[in-house]
Design a protein around this nucleic acid. Structure first.
Lengths: 320, 320
DNA sequence: TATACCAAACCGTCCTGGACAAACAGCCCT
DNA sequence: AGGGCTGTTTGTCCAGGACGGTTTGGTATA
């Protein structure tokens, strides 16, 4: 049973241990890897990996190095590789594949982004805020969100996957960006715009930074955003859409959770929701989703503006 | 391109059903009820409830009425009832229990609070914001947070428990308050105060509104707050405390999650953390926690100011 | 060469039934 | 009232099996 984190440890070497320094019990392995415990156990029996140790009760305990490999595997699967090909590969092989897969070759990190990463590693919060704010002023809110923040998210996600930064450092970044976006949104908020967009995420999807980015862009485009935070059950979304006279339900999907759940959730929601209410699915996770009728997919925020225009046009046409 | 690894969509016949009552397959039952499929299956064998139907493959399908009952049961469990007492009770009994559960007798809600509730039920977001802002101006930030917000949280939690408001309405409230607090914090933020406080929550604890309230009060008292958001593993907190030269780790506990996890987490964290770094545990959840050496407990925000004063005094004494 | 089709392999999820330790409740004792 | 003991409750894990949708890859067809 063994709940927690209190298992001593197996400390990995000194400096870089950070995120992966402690053996992980079953109950936490889903959080650590984004894979379900069931699928991990199946891999164990099918491919011989992972090969967890056992605690005094016979429960599985995943050593840090295996957790790292699982994370890498998860990432490769998300990029289209097949479990049979990558589960059980050595760390080095996985890393090589990951690099081959990464959109930008290593070492091409631009200067500005490198400064942000340095501020993060140095835990220099004031500097981090200053860098972000400067860029915001330079680019303007819309470009800042669509390009800088979007690419920083990917970059930092990759650094985290490679274990180059700690979880808490990633959170520092997230907090700084969200703070800035909150502040900025306030200046463009719109209580009477259209369409009226309800923003939230599916149950199990915790990341709200995507919502905040969407909210920023949508507000800039003149929409009226109502954010519900994360994890809204389908029934509640239906109720909220009715109660708040919503035109569009906006959902954000990260890559953190299995795509299968996301697809099922979308089908379920679409079936229950008033057909007149559109569903717009955004976030980096949607690229893995199979397209479905009645849902608009926006893998990036560039699509928002034309989609809003189209919505207004169709709405005007329908009204006349 | 998107040859995703996780596409398998088992055909869910519930798609064709109407919006109102839809039978729920296993894979969605966790989203709909907030309970794990494993625990639901255990209840089935132990208490004879739920008693799902089966689809053509022999997989469980939960009828809508059983889903409703499961939701009610979860509410009661969250309020401290035990599974053996409530699982399998009839719908009516569950509803009666839910009503009895409220701490305050109905009808004692003060006028101002009633207005907030009305704005919520009416989904009148501008009015809600207006009410909160007015109260903030009237009382000042500190009193507003320590009294109004604190009591509103309890009140709205109870309304949710009794089913008088929907989940999404509770989220609307939370968003409005957090927005307001974010805005207010910015005016009192402090990049060079002391003590340097790291604010976060334990893994599994998702509510960050308590952090925001704490951050407000602490900043007002001249502390330097660094917020990491929710769900920080103990190891990460230790690393962060070192990296950011933290004096105090502040943790918020709600009543939503089981208290046992919280206690284990605190013990683990205390054992790993530099003894010179204090741990302050706050939030409505701490009242259930057994006291422990090396941790200061603050069931409400009134304790913050004297505790900071004491910290400064002891720190001054130690330095001299 | 390109496309359509089909069998085989792959792979995620659900199944049954059992085990166990942590958490709890009730009791006794001081 | 408070602290320690004991029996019960309850969430999570284990093992191995089954199944059906998806992908793959080879073959036949245009």
């Amino acid at each position: 049973m063994s709940h927690t984190y209190d298992q001593p440890l197996r400390s990995v070497s000194s400096l870089d241990c950070g995120a992966a320094g402690v053996a992980v019990p079953v109950i936490l392995i889903e959080n650590e890897t984004g894979l379900t415990k069931e699928v991990i156990r199946k891999w164990e029996s099918r491919y011989g990996f992972p090969r967890p140790e056992r605690d005094e009760n016979g429960d599985r305990i995943y050593p840090p190095d295996q957790v790292v490999r699982l994370r890498l595997i998860r990432r490769l699967l998300g990029a289209g590789m097949r479990p049979g090909k990558v589960v059980g590969l050595e760390l080095e092989t996985l890393e090589r594949l990951t690099e081959q897969m990464s959109l930008e070759p290593p070492g091409t990190t631009s200067d500005g982004f490198q400064q942000v990463l340095d501020a993060l590693s140095g835990h220099d919060l004031p500097r981090l805020t200053h860098l972000l704010k400067g860029q915001l002023i330079r680019q303007g809110l819309s470009v800042f969100v669509r390009e800088t923040v979007a690419r920083l998210n990917v970059l930092i996600g990759e650094c985290w996957l490679r274990g180059e930064i700690n979880i808490f450092e990633e959170h520092l970044y997230t907090e700084a960006v969200c703070d800035l976006l909150h502040e900025s949104i306030r200046t463009v908020i719109n209580f009477s715009g259209s369409p009226r967009v309800l923003l939230t995420t599916a149950p199990g999807e915790l990341h709200t930074i995507g919502l905040l980015m969407a909210s920023t862009i949508l507000s800039l485009e003149g929409a009226h955003c109502i954010s519900l935070g994360a994890q809204m059950p389908a029934v509640e979304i239906v109720t909220a859409a009715k109660g708040c006279a919503i035109d569009v339900v906006g959902l954000s999907f990260s890559i953190a959770r299995p795509a299968r759940d996301a697809a099922l959730f979308l089908r379920d929601l679409r079936a229950r929701l008033d057909p007149a209410v559109e569903i717009w699915a955004g976030g980096v996770g949607v690229s893995r989703l199979r397209r479905m009728d009645g849902v608009r997919y926006m893998p990036d925020l560039e699509k928002v503006s034309p989609t809003i225009t189209a919505w207004r046009k169709s709405r005007a046409g329908a009204a006349s």
